[in-house]
């Protein structure tokens, strides 16, 4: 067993109806301690109404070296945006 306490990523829902958002990380031995530390560290000033904690090593991330390959193709697909289509003003709001 490693003597390093595992790293967790913390996500907070600021208000009812909003999505959880990443706020930072912390070290904790298990789920219960991670939630308890997250509460103490990240919600001292009413920042949240709900907490998610996820082991950092459980996160799958895209490869930054392939960022171009992954995300550039969307750049020239302007027809995926509403402003690409001309609608006469007389039609009204659409």
């Amino acid at each position: 067993m490693s003597n390093e306490t595992p790293l967790w990523e913390v996500f907070i829902r600021p208000r009812n109806g909003l999505a959880h958002k990443h706020v930072g990380s912390l070290h904790a031995a298990d789920e219960a301690l991670a939630l308890s530390a997250a509460r103490d560290v990240y919600t001292r000033r009413e920042e949240g109404t709900s907490i998610w904690a996820v082991r950092s090593d459980a996160i799958v991330a895209s490869d930054p070296a392939r960022a171009g390959q992954n995300f550039d193709p969307a750049e020239d697909k302007i027809y995926r945006h509403p402003t690409f289509y001309d609608i006469p003003e007389d039609v009204g709001h659409m």
């Binding site: 067993m1 003597n3 306490t5 904790a28 031995a29 298990d30 301690l33």
Partner: peptide, 13 residues
């Protein structure tokens, strides 16, 4: 405390 917390977590998992 750190050792006990890790041991407890290992035992539970």
């Amino acid at each position: 405390v750190r050792e006990a917390a890790l041991a407890h977590a290992a035992k539970r998992s």
